[in-house]
C-alpha cells in the first residue's frame, strides 16, 4: 500500500466517521448553513430525562437552510453518534417541520443526510408515529415539486422506518460504506438465528445491505466515495436537470413492474454474489475489491 500523501494539509475526511455538524459544513457551500432551532434555544428530550438518560440539545438532528452549488436548499442531518440517530418525538418533529417548510418555500431541494437505526426505543410510540409523519411529509414535499435527496453513508446506515423513508425520497446517494435495509442484521439474527443472518460476518452484511449492492440493483441512484466532497458532487450532479415527477398511477405501475419482475428473477437468492452473477457481472467476487469508479463503469456495461 502506498503511504498517504497529505497535500496542503487537506485530508480526505471520511463521511462515515464524521459528525452530522461536520458533514453539513463540508457538503454544503462554505459558510452558507443557517441552523433552525439551534442548541442555544433548544431543550433536550424530556422523555430521555425521565429515563435518566442525558439528552442532546439538538435531539440528534440538525436542520436548516443552506446553499449547494449556489442553489438554495434545506438540510436535515441526523447524528448517528447520539442514540444511533434514532427518531424520538422532538427529533422527528424537527424533520417534519423542515419538510413542511420546504413544501411552502420551494427550495431547489431538500438534502436529507440519513444516519439512523429507525425508531428510538426509549420513545417508541412517539418515534413510530413521527416516522409515519415524516413519510407523509416527504411525499407532500415531493408533490409540491421539491426533490428530496437521501444521503446514506453514516455509521448507523438507514434502517427500520428510516430505511422506508429513504426509499420514499426522490433518489438515494450512497457510499460503499453506507447500508440500507429494513431490519438490522442483529435483529434478524436474534429472532431467526445465526444461520439466517450472521450479523458478525461484515462482508455478508455488506453484500446484502451495502452501497455497492444497492447501486447494482438500482435501489440507490448514485454511488460516491466515502467523503463529503463525493456526496456534495453527487447531489449537485443529480440535481442538475432533475425534474421531480408528479405522483401518478403510471409512475407507480412502472415501479410495481420493476419490483415484481426482480422478485421473480432473483427468487430464492440469499447473497449479493448470486444477484450480481444473475445481473451479468462476470466475476462477482471482484465487486468487493474494485474502487467506486470501476464499479460505476462495470454497471454501465451490464446487459440491460
Amino acid at each position: 500500500m502506498n503511504a498517504p500523501v497529505y497535500t496542503n494539509l487537506v485530508l480526505r475526511h471520511s463521511y462515515f466517521e464524521a459528525t452530522a455538524r461536520s458533514r453539513v459544513a463540508a457538503v454544503l457551500d462554505a459558510g452558507s448553513f443557517r441552523e433552525f432551532l439551534p442548541p442555544e434555544v433548544a431543550q433536550p428530550s424530556p422523555h430521555l430525562a425521565i429515563l435518566d438518560i442525558p439528552g442532546a440539545f439538538d435531539d440528534g438532528v440538525i436542520i436548516g437552510s443552506a446553499a449547494l452549488g449556489g442553489k438554495p436548499v434545506l438540510v436535515i442531518a441526523q447524528e448517528g453518534q447520539f442514540m444511533g440517530g434514532a427518531v424520538g418525538e422532538i427529533h422527528g418533529a424537527k424533520i417534519v417541520g423542515l419538510l413542511r417548510r420546504a413544501a411552502l418555500e420551494k427550495p431547489a431541494a431538500v438534502l436529507f443526510m440519513v444516519d439512523s437505526g429507525g425508531v428510538r426505543l426509549h420513545e417508541a410510540n412517539a418515534g413510530l408515529i413521527a416516522i409515519s409523519e415524516i413519510m407523509r411529509a416527504v411525499l407532500d414535499t415531493r408533490a409540491a415539486g421539491v426533490p428530496v435527496l437521501a444521503l446514506v453513508g453514516g455509521s448507523c446506515g438507514a434502517f427500520g422506518g428510516m430505511g422506508i423513508v429513504s426509499r420514499l425520497c426522490s433518489a438515494i446517494i450512497m457510499s460503499e460504506e453506507g447500508r440500507l435495509a429494513l431490519s438490522g442484521p442483529e435483529v434478524i439474527e436474534t429472532v431467526a438465528g445465526v444461520e439466517e443472518f450472521d450479523s458478525k460476518d461484515r462482508a455478508l452484511v455488506w453484500r446484502v445491505t451495502g452501497g455497492k449492492h444497492r447501486y447494482l440493483t438500482g435501489d440507490c441512484a448514485e454511488l460516491v466515495e466515502d467523503d463529503a466532497a463525493g456526496f456534495r458532487q453527487g447531489a449537485i450532479d443529480l440535481l442538475a436537470g432533475w425534474n421531480e415527477p408528479v405522483p401518478s398511477s403510471a409512475g407507480l405501475r412502472a415501479e410495481q413492474e420493476r419490483l415484481s419482475r426482480r422478485r421473480q428473477r432473483f427468487a430464492g437468492m440469499r447473497d449479493g454474489l448470486e444477484v450480481w452473477a444473475a445481473l451479468g457481472v462476470p466475476d462477482p467476487r471482484q465487486v468487493s475489491l474494485i474502487d467506486r469508479d470501476s464499479l460505476v463503469a462495470l454497471k454501465k456495461g451490464l446487459p440491460a
Partner: peptide, 24 residues
C-alpha cells in the same frame, strides 16, 4: 418478515412502494 433473502431485495423499498400507493 425477518429474512436475509427479503432484505437482499430491499424490503424497505417494497414497503415504501406500498406506502406511496396509499398516498397516491
Amino acid at each position: 418478515v425477518l429474512s436475509r433473502a427479503e432484505e437482499l431485495l430491499c424490503l424497505n423499498g417494497s414497503l415504501a412502494h406500498l406506502a406511496r400507493c396509499v398516498d397516491l
